[in-house]
Amino acid sequence: MSETTSEAAPAQKASPGPDAPGPGTSRRGVGHLLRWDVLVTALLLVVFLGGSLTSPSFASAGNLSFALGDLGEIALIALAMTMLVVAAEVDLSVASVLGLSSALVGSLWDAGWSIETIIPLVIVVGAVCGLVNGLLVTRLGLPSLAVTIGTMALYRGLAYVVLGDRAIAEFPQQYASLAVDDVPGTPIPYPVALFVVLAVVTAIVLHSTGFGRSLFAIGSQEEAAFFAGIRVKRIKLVLFVLSGTIAAFAGVIFTLRYGSARADNGVGIELAVIAAVLIGGVDFDGGKGTLGGVIAGVLLIGLLRNLLMLNDVTTEIQSVVTGLLLIVSVLTPRLAAVIRQRRRLPAP
């Protein structure tokens, strides 16, 4: 879908584009400051300071811990989404997989299954959901956007088929507390701790392994990556399965955290996830981005939401803010590129 938007791109891409690191050493410093992930981190600090000043309870350990816990599912899914977007794919069905997983947890629990059986089963279902996405994308060569718009409806529909409009609550305390409680001796909730571990693993995989290298190559020039012997299809399939698996796991956490299984759990979360990834500086066209940036993006969205909530701003306005952030996050780098290009044009 994104190809269209690059109307002027043939001219730009044919030439060493404005993004190509040139020998203009004098501008290197400026270029560094303009680096998107640095900007986002700065913005994060601004929000943090602004939050502490306007709202006294904001910076308290309790609130921050809550804010982080509230972010858990988005943050987890964002890890898989980062890898997908770097490889120039996208998975819009994650929120629906989360919903399906939640609905399954609810209905199976209601049917008397034990949580120990339910969790692995639900995660396998999530992996299968991802596998379906992946097979449609890799075997048939369909655009992931179209496929996951379809499965977004399909999986959400299945969630409703499973649970209807019922809500299942009353999960035993020992499970619910797993999704809410802090790791003993720290103010860090279990899901956050899990996220930190997974984030480190993802960062290493993305930036320091052959698999990660392959993702960047696939994202910027899939054909060249294929010609270099990279198993493009298999790698993409793995990414989609991973995305489905993580989304299903996030569904379990979501259900236990709120103590409520519903088919419409997590509607619209894909927006927040994609917003976080793009705000984090990952190029929607693939091939560019860092996991550090994404983590900053996730935190930014989380803190902003928390701040709005503390200041009694309604959820509707929160969605406006998320939407605007999403647009700004893709708009700014492009405008910055245009400005940089303009500045360089009057060459001697």
């Binding site: 938007t5 956007l145 509707e316 939407g323 605007l324 893709v330 708009l331 492009r334």
Partner: peptide
């Protein structure tokens, strides 16, 4: 989409939520 060259999916996903809000 046309003048700022932002991917259509992202833009309209964003405006979807802004307009709804």
């Amino acid at each position: 989409v046309s003048f700022c060259r932002v991917p259509a999916l992202v833009v309209t996903l964003g405006t979807l939520y802004v307009i709804q809000g």
